[in-house]
Design a protein around this nucleic acid. Structure first.
Lengths: 173, 173
DNA sequence: ATTGATTAGGGGCATATGCTAATATTCGTC
DNA sequence: GACGAATATTAGCATATGCCCCTAATCAAT
């Protein structure tokens, strides 16, 4: 039940690693998979170095984004972080439980929920700055400052709403 | 309870977007967060375009990696995918349940579990090739082939075991 | 003012991901 | 050949992420 060496890898004809002539195939490697792999690797380092703080890099990202945004709604935050609304709402739960953020109804438009940092949230953000910065420096030193800058530039393009719009133009069908 | 404009963003002194002079801070943006954002954006496109197949890009990545590897153990797969072993074991569950992969004990070393594609797994891999390829082409066309190639090269460096070793040298303390 | 469309969030479900502890198996040593 | 060290995997728990559907609230049109 476990064939081997046959076709069916998505790279037909046994041209697994450039064996045949260059077919019109994208690049042999899935961009999404490559991104996921690299993200896991990097997140592992950041999380490991941030472990003493008790929060993860993902959680610090949320706190930092709230700090940058001021008093965003959940939708605002989700958009800024390229995150599904429900996913962000889930992520806020532990932070709210631990007293770092507060979510309350917008008096102006009662459909909205306004997210804000508590004093404890600000304190945690300050407290974790050194750890985060150390991880950031470590990555930059290992990968190279110029390379890192180029990578971030590329990633920001990809994450931008404009890119998403262009990318999604024909993705729905 | 929701201060504003104070310090504590991790980018002190109100220099949120390059306001002050260039301090020796990494880059204003967390590399891990940037990676996560871009990954989500790209994964959303791939998943949306692969929706008709009934499997996600993450799942196809697993099938493709198994196909490439032949008859890997769970540990082999996890290493190749930069994925925690237990996470991969979890990911295999739905695929096993749906009959795309089989996991069986290695007769040679009964501690190991050998993973393999079933006929249905090979068929699904073939079936999803067109969808995956379309997503891949779409991304390349939007982002630019050269840019995409450069990005993939950078991501592969980051995902490589060697990079992880160098990155992790001082991350444990 | 009532109705209908739009928009923001929340709930439930499923997958994804990682950590820690426990279990099973093998290997090396005596 | 038995015992302890090393290795591979699983189990359980928690967070992360996204989709679909539902509810609540606003807005627009009549």
């Amino acid at each position: 039940m476990v064939r081997r060496g046959a076709a069916g890898t998505g790279q037909r004809g046994g041209a697994a690693q450039g064996g045949r002539g260059a077919q019109p195939r994208p690049a042999d490697v899935c961009n999404a998979a490559a991104l996921r792999r690299a993200t896991r690797r990097v997140s592992q380092i950041y999380d490991a170095m941030m472990a003493p703080s008790g929060i993860r890099s993902t959680q610090r990202s949320v706190l930092a984004q709230i700090a940058r945004s001021g008093t965003p709604t959940i939708g605002d935050l989700a958009e800024a972080m390229v995150l599904d609304r429900s996913a962000l709402a889930h992520n806020l739960k532990p932070l709210e439980r631990d007293g770092y953020v507060v979510v309350r109804i917008d008096p102006a438009d009662r459909r909205n929920r306004i997210v804000g940092l508590t004093d404890a949230g600000w304190a945690k953000l300050d407290e974790t700055f050194a750890l985060w910065s150390a991880a950031q420096h470590r990555f930059e030193a290992t990968f190279g400052p110029d390379q890192a800058a180029a990578l971030r530039a590329a990633l920001q393009v990809i994450a931008s709403p404009d890119f998403a719009a262009r990318l999604g133009e024909a993705a729905g069908d």
